[in-house]
Design a binder for these strands. Structure first.
Lengths: 251, 251
DNA sequence: CTTGACCCTGACGCGACGTCAGGCTGTTGC
DNA sequence: GCAACAGCCTGACGTCGCGTCAGGGTCAAG
């Protein structure tokens, strides 16, 4: 096989293979008379391992020594370190996901709208207190002030609909515990599921695990807690538990 | 605050702050008479957001425009894209974690040992069939062949002990369903917990969630399935479920 | 035997900093 | 009152993992 085929198969560019050849990380086992690189199956194997370790975050130089074959003990150690490294990255990535979710849920609650728009949407319920935060969070540059009214992906009607849908579910959520339904009851979980699908429809794809993560924030982030507690005392914990139960039931 | 303090607080280097200043991404709001950068609280806020988006994988230039304030619609779109990007990375990272775990559990079962060593450790139970795979997986370079016998982090005695411990738990696992204990019983979960701690002690730190992930492979990866099924029919599923139940109980 | 897809080797560019070098500043101790 | 030392400044060059030409050779089909 020549470079182009290998590149396509492995999902890398030709240039990458050239690079690996140059630095001696992966030299094809043969060349044609014309100088074309010829990759053997063993080369593909090696490439596979190279890409694995690269994904693990090892610099290419370390990958080379890794594949060169170290004493078994040292290799075990390295694999362990790779595992740790990956776990660290996993944690950080999850933290990022949480941060983005927070941002989007905040947007879902209208916090990230411009003051005027929020006022129009929420009527007098608009909590003026958020203005300062909006400024802090999003700045208020001239360019932004100028363009903010123009191309909004969601029209005011959309926002009103979204808001109404959200209100509806939250209202029914508030009724559930009063009617004696525990947070892991069918009724509560169905509401949670409805909530999840609402988010998926209106904001971003929200699989059950992601929803569970969101649910955690309802009790951890005071802003969300306040939002639910204001509707009914204890509602934040209730919704959070229902969301969790619903995620478990689906997993 | 001056650069050093800000850098320490935010967990970046001074050079990074210099860089952000130079490219205009984050210029301190003041300077002392001597030219020292002076960062105000608002600058820290901005830095915070810069680091968030950087973590999300946005190039610094895009981060700048993001923070400059785009039309609301476009910004929502970008946030969504950022979310997707993060989710993709999360998936890939998880796949990597799975791959590394696989590798390590394989090692735990002795598959990654050299043929000779495996033979000595496992006695005649050594399945010769794995040899080809070991070669495929780890190659058999001269350097490796030469060094493999030397500094092994685990001595043969260690491996024997580890093997005996593993055998013990697996034997008791096999007895549990025969004695009528379901996979989510106290008894099964305790065995799962013992198994988890064994892995943590002998191989790598294995928190419950990671263990749960491992458990999934017992039914998905035919190699592990075969390993357990060979001891007792249905054991793979049983152990997998017990591990899952134990993880849930701890979470 | 031409055309167009593919291959080669330099060589330079880039993003996000790291790492000196050479020099000024600010604080602390004697 | 000043030495010593930590901390700050601005270039300027280096690094990693490639991307992107440029200039030229190769191969299979029509």
């Amino acid at each position: 096989m020549n470079v182009g085929e290998v590149a396509a198969m492995a999902g890398v560019t030709v240039r990458t293979l050239h690079h690996y050849d140059r630095i001696g990380l992966l030299s094809p086992s043969g060349r044609t008379a014309a100088g074309y690189r010829q990759y053997a199956p063993a080369d593909l194997d090696r490439l596979h391992r190279v890409l694995l370790f690269r994904e693990l975050g090892f610099p290419l130089e370390e990958v080379a020594t890794l594949l060169a074959g170290l004493p078994a003990g040292a290799r075990a150690e390295l694999a362990r370190r790779g595992g740790r490294r990956v776990l660290l990255r996993l944690e950080r990535t999850q933290a990022m996901v949480a941060a983005v979710e927070k941002e989007m849920e905040a947007r879902a609650m209208g916090i990230a709208l411009t003051p005027e728009e929020r006022f129009e949407v929420f009527g007098e319920h608009d909590p003026e207190q958020y203005e300062a935060e909006v400024q802090e969070r999003w700045g208020e540059t001239d360019a932004y002030a100028e363009s903010k009214r123009r191309a909004a992906a969601y029209s005011k009607e959309d926002w009103l609909r979204v808001k109404a849908e959200g209100d509806d579910v939250e209202r029914r959520f508030a009724e559930a515990p009063a009617a004696g339904a525990p947070a892991d009851s069918e009724r509560a979980m169905d509401l949670a599921e409805e909530h999840r699908q609402q988010i998926s429809r209106n904001f971003y794809d929200c699989p059950p695990e992601m929803h569970a993560g969101l649910g955690g924030m309802y009790v951890e982030d005071e802003r969300f807690t306040a939002h639910y507690e204001q509707r009914a005392p204890g509602l934040a914990r209730y919704v959070s538990a229902a969301v969790q139960a619903n995620a478990d039931r689906q997993g």
